[in-house]
């Protein structure tokens, strides 16, 4: 189960609160919300996931896709505050931490994963 709540924070920023599990069963939902958000005029889209209880590879892949999408549209997709700790292990196992900057990431912008 995944709960998504959207919270505008200023003119240009949208915070997405996600809680529950971001796994293959729930990625479709988040993708929908993200698509909407990217289509709208928001400049910054931030994820807050302090209450996320689980994530699998497909969840990580979706976040990566979101980041790449933002980079291609000149928007910013990032964590609202600190990335939740448990994500580190999942990312390490899936091999995402070691990657720093795919070709879409413009120089100077931080990769989602660092």
């Amino acid at each position: 189960m995944l709960n998504i709540a959207q919270e505008p924070a200023g003119e240009k920023t949208l915070i997405m609160h996600i809680e529950g599990e971001l796994t293959i069963e729930t990625v479709a939902e988040l993708r929908e919300s993200l698509l909407e958000a990217f289509a709208a005029p928001w400049k910054n889209i931030q994820i807050e996931a302090d209450n996320l209880s689980g994530i699998d590879f497909f969840g990580l892949q979706l976040l990566c896709a979101a980041h790449r999408t933002a980079a291609s549209k000149d928007k910013v997709f990032s964590w609202q505050s600190e990335r939740p700790g448990f994500l580190d292990e999942a990312m390490l196992t899936a091999g995402f931490t070691r990657h720093c900057g795919c070709s879409l990431c413009p120089p100077g912008q931080k990769c989602m994963w660092i």
Partner: peptide, 15 residues
């Protein structure tokens, strides 16, 4: 992980 082939959100099939 090599993410180069991940499509953007609009064409991505998340599963």
């Amino acid at each position: 992980a090599q993410p180069e082939l991940i499509p953007l959100l609009d064409t991505l099939v998340p599963e």
